[in-house]
Simulated scan of single mutants.
Amino acid sequence: MQRILSQWLWPSIAGLAIALLVLEYTGWRSNSPQPAERMTSYATAVATATPSVVNIYTAKVVNEAPSQRNNRFNQLNRGSNQQRVERSLGSGVILSEDGIILTNRHVIAGADAIQVLLNDNRNARAEILGADPATDLAVLKIDLDHLSPAIIGDSNAARVGDVVLAIGNPLGFGSSVTQGIISALGRYGFQGGAYYEDYIQTDATIHMGNSGGALINTKGELLGINSLIYTGGNTANASAGIGISLAVPINLATFVAQDLIDYGQVIRGWMGVSVQPFIPDTSQPNVGALLVTQTVANGPADRAGIKPGDIITAINDEPVTDGRIAMHRIALLRPGDIISVTLVDESDNTQNLNVVLGSLQQAPQS
């Protein structure tokens, strides 16, 4: 009997072992998706960044003229004005543990009272430390402990096609997240400040109330401040939800914020020159220069000997092809900084001139 059991048992055990090995490789033993098949989630990035994003509520007292009220009331109160409160909403991002918040200037413009609501439901009144119309950024300060500052990323390392997430307070619903990709970099021409506009364009949906909120990467790092959605200048005919979402790169935003904290305004370098693209007579691709069309009298360029008609080929030994980018980089420098300008004058002589930058505040007001 023992011999019979032995002859039957061992083939059964061997068959069972082989079956288990086959099932192991076919994935039958587990209903869970394999690592390569698991759905991508950005929950960790959102959890990292969300505590630094705040909701901003503003109130502004405005005078309402008698003509704006009903006639019967006007007859009883001729010549008197009535005050009413306009309320608006937006978003902001905590930059430091001592209560520094970055938002858009248009979110808090003209506000008489600003209330900040944190992700943990605490709230505080905010004061304005400074605002910069050229970049539509503003810095606020609140007095609360145990704040969660954003992790600052590097917007210069952002690439077209990178996945990004927008966090803010759309339509007053509270903290919300949308996903998209970076559609383009270096966008400008939307608000008239061409030298200082340098937007990140995304297709992450933003609405009213998202302004001032965070644009983050998949690590939860802050890449930009969501600023506006462009719909071709005719919102009445724009389809709902269709538009170009734009964010101020965080590298530019932190530069602006630090100046607003330190000086109450942004101190920008200024060369005092107007330029336009100039394409040399050459077969080499991507080669260009800048034609000087005007210099400000006694401005930095004028004092250095730069004249209208000169052709600028390089600044600090770096070739220049785009006047907007060149002036933008100069604006990120400081008054008193010296830059080297390589140019060809009207006599076809190449010169290297040193220009001591002035302050943009010296520019004549139009």
Rank of each mutant, 00 (worst) to 15 (best):
N349D: 04
L222F: 04
S12E: 08
V22N: 04
A289M: 02
I4S: 09
T40K: 08
A331H: 09
T342S: 15
V273G: 02
L215V: 09
Q258I: 10
A158G: 00
G192R: 11
E97K: 15
V355E: 00
T235K: 13
A131F: 01
N71E: 15
L140E: 01
I108L: 05
M1L: 11
A214V: 10
G180F: 12
L291I: 03
E318T: 13
R268L: 05
P149E: 11
G336T: 03
A331G: 14
P170I: 06
N298M: 03
A157H: 12
P319S: 09
D310R: 03
A297N: 14
L252C: 06
T282P: 03
T313F: 07
Q294H: 09
A59G: 14
Y263V: 10
G213C: 01
I225K: 01
A194Y: 15
A49P: 09
A194V: 15
A59H: 07
D143Q: 15
P319A: 10
N226Q: 10
I56S: 04
A247W: 06
V62S: 03
I4T: 09
I56K: 02
G232T: 08
A240Y: 15
R159W: 03
I182M: 07
A204P: 02
Y196P: 01
G264S: 02
I338W: 06
I244P: 02
L102R: 06
T295W: 05
A43F: 00
L95W: 08
I229W: 05
E346R: 15
G186C: 07
D145I: 10
G241M: 13
R159H: 12
N234T: 07
I142M: 11
A45P: 00
I339G: 02
R268F: 01
L21T: 12
W28Y: 15
S52N: 09
F73R: 09
G288H: 01
V116Y: 05
A113M: 13
S283C: 00
E64A: 11
N104Y: 07
I325F: 12
M208D: 12
Y57T: 08
G232L: 06
V22L: 11
V296D: 04
A65D: 13
I101V: 09
L23N: 11
S96M: 10
L343W: 03
A214T: 05
G272N: 11
L95N: 00
L144R: 07
Y25E: 07
S274T: 14
P319C: 08
Q34I: 13
A126G: 00
I182E: 04
L260F: 05
D120I: 03
D136K: 09
P66H: 03
G288V: 00
A36L: 11
Q34H: 10
P149Q: 11
T342Y: 10
T218Y: 10
A158H: 00
N226I: 12
A238K: 14
I108D: 04
G309W: 04
L89R: 02
L165F: 08
D143H: 14
A326I: 07
A131T: 10
Y199W: 12
E197M: 01
V139Y: 06
D281G: 06
R87Q: 15
S366T: 13
M208L: 10
T26C: 01
T178I: 06
L252Y: 01
S67G: 05
A214H: 07
V341P: 02
D143S: 14
T135M: 06
Q2T: 08
A314P: 11
A111M: 08
V164C: 08
A304W: 08
T231V: 13
R87S: 14
S227I: 08
H207R: 14
R329E: 14
L16M: 15
